[in-house]
């Protein structure tokens, strides 16, 4: 495990706990993510990795411990929470583009309504972002007219438009057809290269190998391993991780 200076962490989870009824989904989670770091969270389904990701911008509440972003503890509700969320980009498994807004509006809505950016500027920035993720020509269309891969790239542009300090990806390719997965991963790899701080929950081991600085392996609500991709894939320490990897690699 790499060592961190505490003040250095952009995202910091300390002794985070959460239950769903009887189920203890997050058990004493401690995780520090430094600026510019790409952390890939993997693990079997039900291990709590999505819950962890969603807790970081408080789409899931937590019962114990603290989560802080850039030194500020995540507030419970209200204006401060909204402000903090604006600094944390989120990309969902099911894209969640605003169904009644055009692709361009999906990207400009946040900057205009939340940050008060002038429409002209927001439109220009949004077009640049859409070009960057390769869907510029789709700007006037509605989300339902785009393929899944295109929608997910728009969702990434929408999150980037807020100029976030950190991007969270909650299984961004799990709802995609196989031939569309790469177009989304390519955008994410590019983003990682440009130095964006990213926390990515995924089953794409190729992405983890290629772009991750660290792999965090979760099982049964706990962080079981936290290592470099090299270390994790070639020499997993825990039996749980060995078991998980063997299942992946036999097919």
């Amino acid at each position: 495990m790499t060592t961190h200076v505490p003040g250095d962490a952009l995202v910091s989870l300390n002794a985070v706990n959460k239950h769903y009824g009887q189920l203890h989904v997050l058990k004493d989670i401690n995780l520090q993510v430094r600026k510019g770091e790409v952390v890939v969270v993997i693990g079997p389904s039900g291990s709590g990795k999505s819950t962890l990701c969603r807790a970081i911008n408080r789409l899931e509440t937590i019962e114990g411990g603290t989560i802080s972003i850039d030194g500020k503890v995540l507030p419970e509700e209200g204006k401060e929470l909204a402000q903090l969320r604006a600094d944390v980009g989120m990309v969902f498994q099911s894209f969640n583009l605003f169904a009644h807004k055009t692709i361009l509006e999906n990207v400009t809505l946040g900057p205009i309504k939340v940050k008060g950016v002038a429409k002209g500027t927001a439109d220009k920035d949004a077009m640049a972002l859409l070009e960057r993720v390769g869907v510029g020509h789709q700007a006037p269309k509605l989300p339902a007219q785009l393929s899944g891969g295109q929608q997910q790239r728009v969702a990434i542009a929408r999150a980037l438009a807020m100029k976030p300090k950190v991007m969270l990806f909650d299984e961004p390719t799990s709802a995609l057809d196989p031939e569309m997965i790469n177009e989304v991963l390519d955008v994410m790899v590019q983003l990682a290269k440009e130095g964006m701080t990213m926390i990515v929950v995924t089953h794409e081991m190729g992405f983890a190998r290629k772009a991750a600085d660290r792999v965090v392996f979760m099982a049964d609500g706990q962080i079981v391993e936290d290592a470099t991709p090299e270390e994790f894939f070639t020499n997993p320490k825990s039996d749980r991780a060995k078991d998980f990897l063997s299942k992946l690699l036999t097919h």
Binding site: N57, L59, A82, Q83, R85, A86, D87, V88, G89, M90, F92, N96, L97, F98, L109, G110, K113, V114, K115, A155, R158, A159, A161, M162
Partner: peptide, 8 residues
């Protein structure tokens, strides 16, 4: 959730 995530 998406709307809240962009700070609305």
């Amino acid at each position: 959730e998406a709307a809240r995530s962009i700070g609305m």
